[in-house]
Design a protein around this nucleic acid. Sequence first.
DNA 1: TGACACATACCGACTGTATGGTATGTTTGC
DNA 2: GCAAACATACCATACAGTCGGTATGTGTCA
Lengths: 211, 211
Amino acid sequence: MPRATKQSPERGSARLRLLDAATDIIRDRGFAATTVDDLCKAADVTKGAFFHHFASKDALGVAAAEHWATMTTAFFNAAPYHDPADPLERVLAYVAFRKAMITGNMAEFTCLVGTMAQEVYESSPDIREACGRSIFGHAATLEADIEAARQGRAITGNWTADSLSRHIQAVIQGGFVLAKAANDPECAREGMEHLDRYIRQLFHVREEVAA
Amino acid sequence: MPRATKQSPERGSARLRLLDAATDIIRDRGFAATTVDDLCKAADVTKGAFFHHFASKDALGVAAAEHWATMTTAFFNAAPYHDPADPLERVLAYVAFRKAMITGNMAEFTCLVGTMAQEVYESSPDIREACGRSIFGHAATLEADIEAARQGRAITGNWTADSLSRHIQAVIQGGFVLAKAANDPECAREGMEHLDRYIRQLFHVREEVAA
DNA sequence: TGACACATACCGACTGTATGGTATGTTTGC
DNA sequence: GCAAACATACCATACAGTCGGTATGTGTCA
């Protein structure tokens, strides 16, 4: 366990290392079951460093949610599902991308802010709000494409683009819950197939053979 | 705070009172943030009684999940959505029923086993499995109706009854996560409307004006 | 250029309390 | 009179948070 020493090149990175550790550990055990000592050990920093950067454990929770929002925004911005020229194709590509992301350990593909929101929605309003901003901010990134597709194809249905954008996130989050309960990621993938089928039906396009 | 005294008429009900308290408190704060003392206080029993009935806090978690399964099974068996003669009508009535259930406090309508599974899936396999049995056992109660509707209406789609039964639960669970993140139950209700629309589309039936 | 002030980033021992769990009674129904 | 159903006092530990300190960088002015 190499202590960060004087002249250490990582000096100044304790905050980031703590946030990265929080992302992993909280997804694994949840927020309440994650101790400050756990985080310090994983990030290889001391308790002094922790409370230098964060006023409290709750404050770290808020920062972790915001860090998650920043990371995921950059990640999804750089993802290839934006490539198609047709907005509906982009939405369907997003769903396919989310499905393809479901691999590896449960903690690797599940959602930090969904997990935290579920746990602390009542006990820690600050964390809950930060989680909400992350989830609904991400949902909103699909809204323009959905609306463009809706207008471009003259779809008239009893639903709105923002409602569908939230529903997409709900299916993803629900898939994670079932996957954890079953200890089987396939549950989450299944949900994405239903979601793909639903969206195609809303827009009256043929169902393709699942990729 | 009236201590349970000798000659108390509730004697013998400590276990049940603890399970009921666990149902409420864990849905509010999550499993890890719920202390044994919290449960004892809410159930108005002592720690001795707690550990007389449960070998550990984890054991209570398992029992709470099983108690939840028992309660919800009885509740849904008695619910009116079974009344329609047509199996598809019963499935749609189930979705409407679940939507109508979303009222009151968050902790009142959200799902104990979904919350717990999300939290302890990695750290407590016993609880995770009990949660899984509850969720997937409930999902399975819809499978026969879905399959009957599928055959009765000669539906040929690239999906199975058991997959759809799980997806229905996923949408419900995902709706709960978003509702908590937004602090707004309407998120969960929206999801049920999309689910209703999806099922109707799968079975090629007209969308009704939302109840 | 260098001395000084000041700020930021960290260290690690310490503390008060909360927590899960235990040991040992006491009461109650059969 | 025996076993189940409690009650009460207690314990070891783990936990979030504190505090006095040190190391390193940075701006400033003679």
